[in-house]
Nucleic acid binder design. Sequence first.
DNA 1: ACCTGAACACCGTTCAAGT
DNA 2: ACCTGAACACCGTTCAAGT
Lengths: 203, 203
Amino acid sequence: MTARTPSLTPTLTPGSVPAPARRPRADAVRNRALIVETARTVFTARGSDASLEEIARGAGVGIGTLYRHFPTRDDLVAAVFRERIDELQALGEQLLASDAPGEALATWLHEQLVQAATCRGLAAEAMLTMLGQHDEPSPCESMRQAGAALLARAQAAGDVREGVEIDDLVRMVQAVSLAAEESDDPGSAERLFGFLLDGVRAR
Amino acid sequence: MTARTPSLTPTLTPGSVPAPARRPRADAVRNRALIVETARTVFTARGSDASLEEIARGAGVGIGTLYRHFPTRDDLVAAVFRERIDELQALGEQLLASDAPGEALATWLHEQLVQAATCRGLAAEAMLTMLGQHDEPSPCESMRQAGAALLARAQAAGDVREGVEIDDLVRMVQAVSLAAEESDDPGSAERLFGFLLDGVRAR
DNA sequence: ACCTGAACACCGTTCAAGT
DNA sequence: ACCTGAACACCGTTCAAGT
């Protein structure tokens, strides 16, 4: 969000290495991990608008340290869900080996639904935000491509209709999760998910 | 949210009128309307987490006046969307006269989609919140019943499959709107809405 | 009865001073 | 290089004092 001063100065000599890639200090590594872990706990307990101060306090670090590692709130949220994104990517690549393309896609999307519910809907919000910024080769982008491959295969097999895009599907699953969250009916999410699948199925 | 002191004192005599139902002061009525109108404008411009102070300032009243009329933020949001809810109810009742039950439901749901996009997704959030609290005979509850009648008719005509509930449908439409909001593809909402309709159609 | 705005609490964010 | 926490800004919410 915040614009940073461009670091590319004209004094950069042609042969110079772009980034020194120093190894970070051990306490910094530990603090970073502690903050992420605490954030996960606090987000689960308090929801998406938990206080950053509470997270810093819980991790036993100063608020400045939290900001040093995660300049924006989104950066922290992204770090919290990084593992889940990687898991979804791995699952997607695994499912490409399945011999039932339609079912494989459904399984992957259902896992998206399960993940979306973590941290009281924060996971779903984070996913929607991340899907909006598919510029650089981010972990989310890799996950997206795994899903796209599953979808293409399901379409080629005639299981899913044409015109459906992977972003639509993933977005819809997050939306289903968000919409079902406030419902008093516990089966709501699964039922809505079923409608979604039926809607994209080839007929 | 905040618990209030119970006002029901034992001195209440059996024959006493429960509420005097006084006519409110003219300036109070005007202020209330001004606050709601300003809130709509500010929510549209700044999104769902607009400052209440800005709304009060824009309406030309003290912050205390805003709180007097709307004890919680949700109360103000509900007031902002009250008219839309009433419109949806009226439209639903009108559409019951149509001779194409499936199409009538689709038209009503599409109007839900259009409404959901107002105030940068705040309308969708508000609708989801309101659907969660269907206790008293609220305006939202009347709207819900109009939709339920449309759905029942579409199901009786064999246009929509059984097992679908009106809350599911309305929630899904809000979900579609929320999911499409952050997308860079402008046709996203309509495409997802189309999938939703196909998913609930009888086959 | 209603309005006002000062007062308090809480949180986000920055930054000078430390190690 | 990294950490700390005081300092500042901003907003939500309440309430005593006004009309």
